[in-house]
Design a protein around this nucleic acid. Structure first.
Lengths: 141, 141
DNA sequence: TTATACCCGAGTAATTCACCAGGCTTTACT
DNA sequence: AGTAAAGCCTGGTGAATTACTCGGGTATAA
Protein backbone atom coordinates (compact mmCIF):
# COMPACT_ATOMS: atom_id res chain seq x y z
CA UNK A 1 0.00 0.00 0.00
CA UNK A 2 2.82 2.40 -0.63
CA UNK A 3 2.25 5.68 -2.34
CA UNK A 4 4.21 6.21 -5.51
CA UNK A 5 6.78 8.96 -5.84
CA UNK A 6 4.04 11.08 -7.35
CA UNK A 7 2.33 11.60 -4.05
CA UNK A 8 5.52 11.84 -2.06
CA UNK A 9 7.31 14.23 -4.39
CA UNK A 10 4.13 16.21 -4.87
CA UNK A 11 3.81 16.74 -1.13
CA UNK A 12 7.42 17.85 -0.90
CA UNK A 13 6.91 20.34 -3.69
CA UNK A 14 3.71 21.73 -2.21
CA UNK A 15 5.29 22.13 1.19
CA UNK A 16 8.27 23.82 -0.43
CA UNK A 17 5.90 26.25 -2.11
CA UNK A 18 4.16 26.91 1.18
CA UNK A 19 7.42 27.47 3.00
CA UNK A 20 9.46 29.40 0.46
CA UNK A 21 6.79 30.83 -1.77
CA UNK A 22 6.09 34.53 -1.51
CA UNK A 23 4.59 37.10 -3.78
CA UNK A 24 6.74 36.21 -6.76
CA UNK A 25 6.51 32.73 -8.23
CA UNK A 26 9.03 30.00 -7.46
CA UNK A 27 10.67 28.46 -10.51
CA UNK A 28 10.43 24.69 -10.77
CA UNK A 29 14.19 24.39 -10.92
CA UNK A 30 14.56 25.89 -7.45
CA UNK A 31 12.02 23.54 -5.95
CA UNK A 32 13.47 20.52 -7.70
CA UNK A 33 16.98 21.31 -6.51
CA UNK A 34 15.98 22.06 -2.95
CA UNK A 35 13.88 18.90 -2.70
CA UNK A 36 16.30 16.78 -4.71
CA UNK A 37 13.77 15.71 -7.30
CA UNK A 38 14.32 15.31 -11.02
CA UNK A 39 13.19 18.56 -12.59
CA UNK A 40 11.68 16.99 -15.71
CA UNK A 41 9.71 14.55 -13.63
CA UNK A 42 8.51 17.13 -11.15
CA UNK A 43 7.27 19.16 -14.08
CA UNK A 44 4.79 16.43 -14.89
CA UNK A 45 3.56 16.28 -11.34
CA UNK A 46 3.16 20.00 -10.88
CA UNK A 47 1.36 20.10 -14.20
CA UNK A 48 -1.30 17.84 -12.68
CA UNK A 49 -1.46 20.03 -9.61
CA UNK A 50 -1.96 23.07 -11.81
CA UNK A 51 -4.72 21.40 -13.81
CA UNK A 52 -6.38 20.51 -10.53
CA UNK A 53 -6.25 24.16 -9.55
CA UNK A 54 -3.95 23.76 -6.58
CA UNK A 55 -1.13 25.87 -7.96
CA UNK A 56 -0.95 28.74 -10.42
CA UNK A 57 1.78 29.17 -12.95
CA UNK A 58 3.44 32.24 -14.39
CA UNK A 59 5.03 31.70 -17.75
CA UNK A 60 8.04 33.40 -19.23
CA UNK A 61 11.21 34.69 -17.67
CA UNK A 62 10.98 35.24 -13.90
CA UNK A 63 8.05 32.88 -13.97
CA UNK A 64 7.33 29.89 -11.79
CA UNK A 65 4.63 28.52 -9.51
CA UNK A 66 2.61 29.73 -6.56
CA UNK A 67 0.01 28.13 -4.36
CA UNK A 68 -3.44 28.87 -5.72
CA UNK A 69 -4.83 29.24 -2.19
CA UNK A 70 -3.48 30.16 1.23
CA UNK A 71 -1.83 27.19 2.98
CA UNK A 72 -4.69 26.76 5.43
CA UNK A 73 -7.04 26.05 2.54
CA UNK A 74 -4.94 23.32 0.94
CA UNK A 75 -5.25 19.88 2.46
CA UNK A 76 -2.81 17.04 2.18
CA UNK A 77 -5.71 15.01 0.87
CA UNK A 78 -6.35 17.26 -2.09
CA UNK A 79 -2.69 17.06 -3.09
CA UNK A 80 -2.34 13.32 -2.69
CA UNK A 81 -5.66 12.48 -4.30
CA UNK A 82 -4.82 14.67 -7.28
CA UNK A 83 -1.61 12.78 -7.90
CA UNK A 84 -2.51 9.29 -6.77
CA UNK A 85 -6.21 9.03 -7.29
CA UNK A 86 -8.53 7.59 -4.68
CA UNK A 87 -7.17 6.11 -1.50
CA UNK A 88 -9.46 3.12 -1.98
CA UNK A 89 -7.61 -0.18 -1.48
CA UNK A 90 -9.94 -1.79 -4.00
CA UNK A 91 -11.61 -0.38 -7.10
CA UNK A 92 -15.04 -1.25 -5.72
CA UNK A 93 -14.90 1.50 -3.09
CA UNK A 94 -13.64 4.62 -4.86
CA UNK A 95 -15.52 7.81 -4.01
CA UNK A 96 -16.34 8.83 -7.54
CA UNK A 97 -17.22 5.81 -9.67
CA UNK A 98 -16.93 2.61 -7.69
CA UNK A 99 -16.45 -0.35 -9.96
CA UNK A 100 -19.71 -2.16 -9.63
CA UNK A 101 -19.55 -5.75 -8.69
CA UNK A 102 -22.59 -8.02 -8.83
CA UNK A 103 -21.81 -9.30 -5.39
CA UNK A 104 -21.41 -5.85 -3.87
CA UNK A 105 -24.50 -6.25 -1.70
CA UNK A 106 -23.50 -9.51 -0.15
CA UNK A 107 -19.76 -8.91 -0.05
CA UNK A 108 -18.44 -8.90 3.49
CA UNK A 109 -15.01 -7.69 2.46
CA UNK A 110 -16.19 -4.53 0.78
CA UNK A 111 -17.09 -2.75 4.03
CA UNK A 112 -13.54 -3.36 5.19
CA UNK A 113 -12.07 -1.69 2.12
CA UNK A 114 -14.49 1.14 2.71
CA UNK A 115 -13.35 1.63 6.28
CA UNK A 116 -9.74 1.64 5.20
CA UNK A 117 -10.38 4.32 2.62
CA UNK A 118 -12.40 6.43 5.02
CA UNK A 119 -9.80 6.26 7.72
CA UNK A 120 -7.04 7.33 5.35
CA UNK A 121 -9.22 10.09 3.94
CA UNK A 122 -9.95 11.33 7.43
CA UNK A 123 -6.28 11.65 8.20
CA UNK A 124 -5.21 13.38 5.03
CA UNK A 125 -8.22 15.66 4.76
CA UNK A 126 -7.71 16.96 8.26
CA UNK A 127 -4.16 18.23 7.67
CA UNK A 128 -3.42 21.42 5.77
CA UNK A 129 -0.19 22.93 4.52
CA UNK A 130 -0.65 25.51 7.27
CA UNK A 131 -0.54 22.76 9.90
CA UNK A 132 2.70 21.58 8.40
CA UNK A 133 4.17 25.06 8.46
CA UNK A 134 3.31 25.36 12.13
CA UNK A 135 4.88 22.02 12.92
CA UNK A 136 7.95 23.13 11.06
CA UNK A 137 8.20 26.38 12.98
CA UNK A 138 7.67 24.74 16.35
CA UNK A 139 10.39 22.26 15.58
CA UNK A 140 13.10 24.82 15.16
CA UNK A 141 12.67 26.09 18.70
CA UNK B 1 -2.83 3.21 -2.78
CA UNK B 2 -4.61 0.13 -4.01
CA UNK B 3 -3.88 -3.24 -2.61
CA UNK B 4 -2.65 -5.79 -5.11
CA UNK B 5 -4.61 -8.92 -5.90
CA UNK B 6 -2.50 -10.68 -3.31
CA UNK B 7 -4.23 -8.98 -0.44
CA UNK B 8 -7.64 -9.04 -2.04
CA UNK B 9 -7.53 -12.67 -3.16
CA UNK B 10 -5.93 -13.67 0.11
CA UNK B 11 -8.79 -12.16 2.08
CA UNK B 12 -11.32 -13.94 -0.10
CA UNK B 13 -9.58 -17.23 0.45
CA UNK B 14 -9.31 -16.76 4.19
CA UNK B 15 -12.94 -15.82 4.50
CA UNK B 16 -13.87 -18.83 2.38
CA UNK B 17 -11.92 -21.03 4.75
CA UNK B 18 -13.66 -19.45 7.71
CA UNK B 19 -17.09 -19.88 6.16
CA UNK B 20 -16.83 -23.29 4.55
CA UNK B 21 -14.00 -24.86 6.48
CA UNK B 22 -14.84 -27.57 8.96
CA UNK B 23 -12.96 -30.41 10.52
CA UNK B 24 -11.66 -31.76 7.23
CA UNK B 25 -9.39 -29.57 5.11
CA UNK B 26 -10.64 -27.64 2.10
CA UNK B 27 -8.78 -28.35 -1.12
CA UNK B 28 -7.37 -25.33 -2.88
CA UNK B 29 -9.30 -26.16 -6.01
CA UNK B 30 -12.60 -25.76 -4.22
CA UNK B 31 -11.65 -22.37 -2.82
CA UNK B 32 -10.26 -21.16 -6.13
CA UNK B 33 -13.39 -22.16 -8.01
CA UNK B 34 -15.79 -20.71 -5.47
CA UNK B 35 -13.88 -17.42 -5.31
CA UNK B 36 -13.10 -17.37 -9.02
CA UNK B 37 -9.37 -17.10 -8.61
CA UNK B 38 -6.69 -18.83 -10.65
CA UNK B 39 -5.79 -21.97 -8.76
CA UNK B 40 -2.07 -21.85 -9.56
CA UNK B 41 -1.87 -18.25 -8.46
CA UNK B 42 -3.83 -18.75 -5.28
CA UNK B 43 -1.47 -21.56 -4.43
CA UNK B 44 1.36 -19.07 -4.16
CA UNK B 45 -0.64 -16.82 -1.91
CA UNK B 46 -1.83 -19.53 0.41
CA UNK B 47 1.72 -20.78 0.58
CA UNK B 48 2.70 -17.45 2.11
CA UNK B 49 -0.20 -17.67 4.51
CA UNK B 50 0.92 -21.12 5.53
CA UNK B 51 4.50 -20.01 6.08
CA UNK B 52 3.17 -17.18 8.21
CA UNK B 53 1.31 -19.74 10.30
CA UNK B 54 -2.19 -18.55 9.46
CA UNK B 55 -3.31 -21.74 7.77
CA UNK B 56 -2.33 -25.37 8.09
CA UNK B 57 -2.04 -27.74 5.18
CA UNK B 58 -2.77 -31.44 4.85
CA UNK B 59 -0.96 -33.10 2.00
CA UNK B 60 -2.03 -36.01 -0.09
CA UNK B 61 -5.39 -37.19 -1.24
CA UNK B 62 -8.29 -35.70 0.71
CA UNK B 63 -5.89 -32.98 1.75
CA UNK B 64 -6.32 -29.22 1.68
CA UNK B 65 -6.13 -26.24 3.98
CA UNK B 66 -7.59 -25.22 7.31
CA UNK B 67 -7.39 -22.11 9.40
CA UNK B 68 -4.58 -22.47 11.91
CA UNK B 69 -6.65 -20.64 14.55
CA UNK B 70 -10.30 -20.04 15.29
CA UNK B 71 -11.74 -17.17 13.23
CA UNK B 72 -11.89 -14.82 16.20
CA UNK B 73 -8.14 -15.04 16.54
CA UNK B 74 -7.31 -14.17 12.95
CA UNK B 75 -7.34 -10.49 12.09
CA UNK B 76 -7.69 -8.95 8.68
CA UNK B 77 -4.46 -7.14 9.43
CA UNK B 78 -2.44 -10.31 9.88
CA UNK B 79 -3.68 -11.63 6.55
CA UNK B 80 -3.11 -8.45 4.59
CA UNK B 81 0.23 -7.66 6.13
CA UNK B 82 1.44 -11.17 5.39
CA UNK B 83 0.64 -10.80 1.72
CA UNK B 84 1.26 -7.11 1.15
CA UNK B 85 3.82 -6.14 3.72
CA UNK B 86 3.53 -3.02 5.81
CA UNK B 87 0.68 -0.58 5.27
CA UNK B 88 3.17 2.29 5.40
CA UNK B 89 2.64 4.75 2.54
CA UNK B 90 6.36 5.49 2.57
CA UNK B 91 9.33 3.27 3.35
CA UNK B 92 10.42 5.62 6.13
CA UNK B 93 7.54 4.61 8.40
CA UNK B 94 7.34 0.83 8.27
CA UNK B 95 6.86 -0.87 11.65
CA UNK B 96 9.79 -3.23 11.41
CA UNK B 97 12.78 -1.53 9.79
CA UNK B 98 11.96 2.02 8.75
CA UNK B 99 14.29 3.18 6.02
CA UNK B 100 16.35 5.75 7.79
CA UNK B 101 16.50 9.12 6.20
CA UNK B 102 18.97 11.76 7.38
CA UNK B 103 16.22 14.31 7.49
CA UNK B 104 13.86 12.11 9.49
CA UNK B 105 14.04 14.38 12.52
CA UNK B 106 13.17 17.57 10.72
CA UNK B 107 10.79 16.07 8.17
CA UNK B 108 7.29 17.46 8.52
CA UNK B 109 5.80 14.98 6.07
CA UNK B 110 6.91 11.87 7.89
CA UNK B 111 4.40 12.28 10.75
CA UNK B 112 1.66 12.34 8.14
CA UNK B 113 2.77 9.03 6.63
CA UNK B 114 2.91 7.67 10.15
CA UNK B 115 -0.66 8.70 10.90
CA UNK B 116 -1.84 7.15 7.67
CA UNK B 117 -0.22 3.86 8.50
CA UNK B 118 -1.52 3.87 12.04
CA UNK B 119 -5.05 4.59 10.99
CA UNK B 120 -5.07 1.78 8.45
CA UNK B 121 -3.49 -0.59 10.93
CA UNK B 122 -6.14 0.31 13.49
CA UNK B 123 -8.89 -0.60 11.08
CA UNK B 124 -7.51 -3.88 9.87
CA UNK B 125 -6.23 -5.06 13.23
CA UNK B 126 -9.62 -4.54 14.83
CA UNK B 127 -11.53 -6.83 12.46
CA UNK B 128 -11.36 -10.60 12.71
CA UNK B 129 -12.67 -13.33 10.46
CA UNK B 130 -15.25 -13.97 13.16
CA UNK B 131 -16.57 -10.41 12.75
CA UNK B 132 -16.93 -11.07 9.06
CA UNK B 133 -18.78 -14.31 9.65
CA UNK B 134 -21.22 -12.50 11.91
CA UNK B 135 -21.78 -9.78 9.34
CA UNK B 136 -22.39 -12.46 6.77
CA UNK B 137 -24.93 -14.25 8.93
CA UNK B 138 -26.78 -11.07 9.85
CA UNK B 139 -27.03 -10.15 6.21
CA UNK B 140 -29.00 -13.20 5.21
CA UNK B 141 -31.83 -12.32 7.57
C1' DT C 1 -0.57 -48.46 -6.78
C1' DT C 2 -2.94 -44.80 -8.23
C1' DA C 3 -5.35 -40.67 -8.08
C1' DT C 4 -5.47 -36.60 -5.42
C1' DA C 5 -3.64 -32.87 -3.54
C1' DC C 6 0.05 -29.90 -1.63
C1' DC C 7 5.04 -28.04 -2.60
C1' DC C 8 8.36 -25.44 -5.19
C1' DG C 9 11.03 -22.86 -8.63
C1' DA C 10 11.30 -20.81 -12.92
C1' DG C 11 9.51 -18.28 -16.64
C1' DT C 12 6.66 -14.57 -18.88
C1' DA C 13 3.38 -11.20 -20.85
C1' DA C 14 1.44 -7.01 -19.49
C1' DT C 15 1.43 -3.08 -16.92
C1' DT C 16 3.16 0.58 -14.18
C1' DC C 17 6.89 3.55 -12.51
C1' DA C 18 10.13 6.92 -12.75
C1' DC C 19 12.03 9.15 -15.32
C1' DC C 20 14.44 11.65 -20.01
C1' DA C 21 14.49 14.32 -24.48
C1' DG C 22 13.25 17.69 -27.28
C1' DG C 23 10.61 21.05 -29.25
C1' DC C 24 7.23 24.96 -28.61
C1' DT C 25 5.41 29.15 -26.44
C1' DT C 26 5.43 33.01 -23.34
C1' DT C 27 7.54 36.89 -21.13
C1' DA C 28 11.02 39.98 -18.49
C1' DC C 29 14.93 42.30 -19.21
C1' DT C 30 18.44 44.74 -21.85
C1' DA D 1 14.24 43.77 -31.17
C1' DG D 2 16.84 40.11 -29.31
C1' DT D 3 17.80 36.88 -25.92
C1' DA D 4 17.53 34.09 -22.10
C1' DA D 5 14.54 32.19 -18.68
C1' DA D 6 10.89 29.94 -17.72
C1' DG D 7 6.54 27.05 -18.31
C1' DC D 8 3.91 23.67 -21.65
C1' DC D 9 3.41 19.35 -24.05
C1' DT D 10 4.20 14.89 -26.29
C1' DG D 11 6.39 10.85 -26.73
C1' DG D 12 9.72 7.41 -25.58
C1' DT D 13 12.20 4.10 -22.54
C1' DG D 14 14.55 1.01 -19.22
C1' DA D 15 13.58 -1.11 -14.95
C1' DA D 16 10.60 -2.99 -11.82
C1' DT D 17 6.40 -5.05 -10.42
C1' DT D 18 2.19 -7.64 -11.12
C1' DA D 19 -0.41 -11.40 -12.08
C1' DC D 20 -0.17 -14.88 -13.52
C1' DT D 21 1.44 -19.94 -16.06
C1' DC D 22 4.08 -24.29 -16.35
C1' DG D 23 6.27 -28.27 -15.03
C1' DG D 24 7.88 -31.09 -12.13
C1' DG D 25 8.25 -32.87 -7.52
C1' DT D 26 6.36 -35.26 -2.85
C1' DA D 27 2.95 -37.04 0.44
C1' DT D 28 -1.01 -39.84 1.42
C1' DA D 29 -5.87 -41.85 1.48
C1' DA D 30 -8.27 -45.36 -0.70
Amino acid sequence: MKLSTKGRYGMKAMFDLALHGGKSPLPLKTIAERQEISEAYLEQLISSLRKAGLVNSVRGSQGGYKLAYPPEEITVGSVIRTLEGSMAPSACVTEEKPLDCKKADSCVIRPIWEKMRESVDNVIDSITLQDMLEDYNNQSQ
